[in-house]
Design a protein around this nucleic acid. Structure first.
Length: 880
RNA sequence: GCGGGUGUGGCGAAAUGGUAACCGCAGGAGACUCAAAAUCUCCCGAGCUCCGGCUCUUGUCGGUUCGAAUCCGACCACCCGCACCA
């Protein structure tokens, strides 16, 4: 016989639970709203210290998912806890509302992106409100509202005036069928993800925000972000990618097409004497000239261009090249010349788009040289090798050593000393210099889309690019657009783009590109400080609330969103809109929510609610009874159908249960597995806590604090005050699962006290314990906490408004402590003594413990270790 | 390849130099019940046991220490990020 642990084991609606969350949760949500509990002013005058809690705002897809529930639960616990600790807490919510899904929906369902988006927002707002989050809803905004994006246009124009914006040509992935630019991740196997058309590399004029201008500071300031996860800082540092090297010029033996030299960037100028070729990127200007004369070169370049940019292709791609026939002179060896190749592994976007090849000490260069029979000269001798016997086989050596075969560098230590000498040598000759290079590139923000913030400029034939005058902002998206043909609807609109030039009044053309949606999310945290202000950011409000004290979201935003926001904050400072550099003082990255996946006999994915999982781990289809294969536990995804709908969970168990299970399961930075049994267990606890509380509230009041307490009452008070201390510590350190465990212990202690004889002092202690339990769970189970406190103290303060309880250390202290007694590090017994007992007393008791005494018998004790209130260890002489 | 992380009962985990496994989930036994659900009680790392205890156990091997899940070194496995970055 197998029992089920599936949804059928859940309480039927017919049996009324004693704690009726269905009536309590909406009732308390309405009460909080009525009292304005979570509302704060833009610039508060109440003198309380501020705390800004922010969770990454959601994209309005139409439904919240478990990842949202986890994210907003974590943030809400922090917000409610900090509020109880006396902070004035800013905890806002809004919508990251621009983006492609709205346009796709428009194409597929003939629904307008605006309507689709606002409908989704309304639906998701309702779902979020059911979670009982302590949000200041008066601050809500959506980035697709001109009231928001108009300010964004102003910020852009100010950045433009400050020289932080540039218009320039750049290579993009172009989908010729959809008539739009694709992001790298939208190119799959060289084809557009939606049209399936072969993607072309095309040069387009695009707007760039000059994030590279801040690269040094964005890197250096990472050190100060001590409340950020180490791995996020490492990821950002890698992304910014600082490297030290040299830029140097190689003169062409014969100038060609008016070009007489090639500039190269290298991090290893010390290996210059090991050079055997020079390679340029297929997009390098010199390559175009070569291709014009050499059909083979032209064909090679064309092949590289169609190769695609996907990682999989790059990874497996063989190193290939084309000899241009040109030769360059070596800066240090005027008589030596080297061939110039076009190579598929040289990137135009990094460094100068040209490298010198040193096959002895770079694996790529070695692979290339072996393929085309180029020379390999070792110039760094590894420690312990002798010069005569050392040669390079199929493994380049990139470690430290001593310079050989390198003229004036011979004998120097590689890489550092030799690098410095080589750079000095290049500088002396006037052909190169030491430089710092960055991997970070400027941020291209132009998108050929409708559903985004219009870029507020006008193109005039005579005046060039003219900013839209501030008085004409916002530049509002037209409503009457069609999606019946490919390309950007803004560009197709009959009238929208035709305007008079603000400078000369002649007919001109509006910019029809819109911003990358990452722009929208790069300053929303600042707008929350004064969401209704006439200016984008109010300095006084931002000065009060910024930075965000605790930011919470997914690790998937570790680089782009967080880096862009850090850049934007600096850019806003440079344009006078903000007065700080770092937007997020503390960052927490949560793990994903996962679930088992299920497949039917025909291999199709099944939703969890279609499946009945038996206790032995096998599963069947609920309707058909057919066998179901239980698959891996994976991140919830629609395609695998291993999703659980938060709305359904809240219907069945209530918001508190969903919150409690999410918090209790494991540490919040790890992936958690959503299970039906775990959710049911959390539900049982909410009922149990309510029942324990009700048993106490049903008793007559216990009155004044008793003078003395019986041992049971003392024990309960000890459990209560220990729980206060432990839960406080756990919440401070984001160890919510530990906080939950300590609350279970307190509940167990309350349950034990129920079975002890009912004395007045125990009754008092039980009331104290129940009250404290309610206040300790309030950040996690806010509705249940209110319900319990309202019964315990009718007409009293809301749990939401009570200060955080203080533990009484004297009450938490134990009457006796159990001390472990070890002999040679092995546990042989325990002794119970009063806390702080004299060392001699404890040692005597330890030696007298029968099992310890037996272990000590006939042996000489050479050392007695005593750690107060913890442990005794006897060290014996000689062998056993 | 480089960088970061993780590894503890059947499962999620706790303990960050001092009695390994708190708390929960799953499981087992019992109470209540005509019965079930709910609830409550007890058991629950492995092996041995003369029932006093003993031995083993935190990925593996070594080291430091009176004492190591915890600190150090080497290795193994898995996860994540980055990458022809010159």
């Amino acid at each position: 016989m197998s029992t089920t642990v599936s949804t059928s084991a859940l309480p039927a609606a017919a049996e009324a639970p004693r704690y009726d969350f269905r009536s309590a949760e909406p009732r308390w949500q309405a009460e909080w709203e009525r009292r304005g509990c979570f509302h704060v002013a833009d610039v508060p005058a109440d003198g309380r210290p501020k705390y800004y809690v922010l969770e990454m705002f959601p994209y309005p897809s139409g439904k919240i998912h478990m990842g949202h529930v986890r994210n907003y639960t974590l943030g809400d616990v922090v917000a409610r806890y900090k509020r109880a600790r006396g902070f004035s807490v800013l905890h806002p919510m809004g919508w990251d509302a621009f983006g492609l899904p709205a346009e796709n929906a428009a194409r597929e369902r003939r629904s307008h992106p605006a309507k689709w988006t606002w409908d989704n927002i309304a639906a998701m707002r309702g779902e979020l409100k059911r979670m009982g989050l302590s949000l200041d809803w008066a601050r809500e905004f959506a980035t697709c509202d001109p009231a928001y994006y108009g300010h964004q246009q102003k910020l852009f124009l100010d950045m433009l005036a400050a020289g932080l914006v540039e218009r320039r040509e750049s290579w993009v992935n172009w989908d010729p069928v959809d008539g739009t630019v694709l992001a790298n991740e939208q190119v799959i196997d060289g084809r557009g993800w939606r049209s399936g058309a072969l993607v072309e590399k095309k040069q387009l004029s695009q707007w760039f925000l000059k994030i590279t201008q801040f690269a040094p500071d964005l890197l250096a300031a990472l050190d100060g972000l001590d409340r950020w996860p180490e791995r996020v800082r490492v990821m950002q540092a890698n992304w910014i990618g600082r490297s030290e090297g040299a830029r140097l010029r190689f003169d062409l033996a014969t100038p060609t097409d008016g070009i007489d030299a090639i500039e190269v960037y290298t991090t290893r100028p010390d290996t210059l004497f090991g050079m055997s070729f020079l390679a340029i990127a297929p997009e390098h200007p010199l390559a175009a000239g070569v291709a014009a004369r050499d059909a083979g070169a032209a064909a090679f370049i064309a092949a590289c261009r169609s190769m695609g940019t996907s990682e999989a292709v790059l990874e497996t791609q063989e190193k290939r090249g084309w000899d241009t026939g040109l030769r360059v002179r070596h800066p240090f060896l005027p008589d030596a010349t080297y061939p110039v190749w076009i190579a598929n592994f040289v990137l135009m976007e990094y460094g100068t788009g040209a490298i010198f090849g040193c096959p002895g000490h770079d694996q790529r260069d070695l692979d290339f040289s072996r393929k085309y029979g180029l020379s390999v000269v070792p110039v760094v001798l590894p420690p312990g090798e002798d010069e005569a016997g050392f040669s390079i086989a199929d493994k380049a050596y990139d470690g430290p050593g001593v310079m050989i075969n390198s003229g004036f560098l011979d004998g120097l230590a590689a890489p550092e000393a030799a690098k410095a000498a080589a750079i000095a040598g290049l500088a002396r000759l006037g052909v190169g210099e030491g430089v710092v290079n960055w991997r970070l590139r400027d941020w291209g923000v132009s998108r050929q889309r409708y559903w985004g913030c219009p870029i507020p400029v006008i193109h005039c034939e005579s005046c060039g690019v003219v900013p839209v005058p501030a008085a004409d902002l916002p530049v509002v998206l037209p409503d009457d657009v069609t999606f019946d043909r490919p390309g950007n609807p803004l560009d197709h609109h009959p009238t929208w783009k035709h305007v008079a030039c603000p400078a000369c009044g002649q007919p001109a053309r509006r910019e029809t590109d819109t911003f990358d949606t990452f722009v929208d999310s790069s300053w929303y945290f600042a707008r929350y400080c004064s969401p209704h202000a006439a200016e984008p950011v109010t300095l006084a409000a931002a000065a009060h609330w910024m930075p965000v004290d605790q930011y919470i979201g997914g690790i998937e935003h570790a680089i782009l969103h967080l880096l862009y926001s850090r850049f934007f904050t600096r850019a806003l400072k440079a344009t006078g809109h903000l007065a700080l550099d770092e937007p997020f003082a503390g960052l927490f990255t949560q793990g994903m929510v996962t679930h088992e996946s299920y497949r039917g006999e025909d291999g199709s994915w099944l939703y969890p609610e279609e499946v009945e999982v038996r206790a032995d781990g096998t599963a069947v289809h609920r309707q058909t009874g057919a066998a179901v294969t239980v698959g891996r536990v994976e991140a919830m995804s629609k395609s695998r159908r291993n999703t659980v709908d938060p709305g359904a969970i809240i219907d069945r168990f209530g918001a508190d249960t969903a919150r409690w299970f999410i918090l209790s399961d494991n540490p919040p930075d790890r992936d958690m597995e959503w299970t039906e049994s775990g959710a049911a267990g959390a539900y049982r606890f909410t009922q149990r806590l309510f029942r324990l509380a009700e048993a106490v509230t049903a008793l007559p009041g216990a009155g004044e604090v008793p003078d003395t307490f019986c041992p049971e009452a003392r024990g309960l008070r000890r459990a209560t005050h220990r729980a206060i201390a432990a839960v406080t510590e756990a919440l401070e350190s984001f160890a919510f699962n530990v906080a939950v465990a300590r609350i279970y212990e307190l509940a167990n202690a309350i349950g034990d006290a129920e079975r002890a004889p009912d004395t007045a002092d125990l009754r008092w202690a039980r009331q104290e314990a129940v009250e404290m339990a309610a206040r300790l769970v309030a950040p996690m189970l806010p509705h249940l906490a209110e319900e319990i406190l309202a019964r315990l103290r009718p007409g009293g303060a809301l749990a939401t408004d009570l200060p955080w309880p203080e533990a009484n250390a004297a009450l938490a202290a134990a009457d006796t402590v159990k001390i472990a007694v070890q002999v040679m590090g092995k546990l042989r017994g325990t002794v119970e003594v009063t806390p702080g007992a004299a060392e001699a007393t404890v040692l005597a008791a330890a030696e007298a413990e029968p099992n310890v005494a037996r272990a000590l018998e006939g042996r000489r004790v050479v050392k007695r270790i005593y750690v107060a209130n913890r442990i005794v260890n006897f060290v014996l002489a000689g062998p056993a």
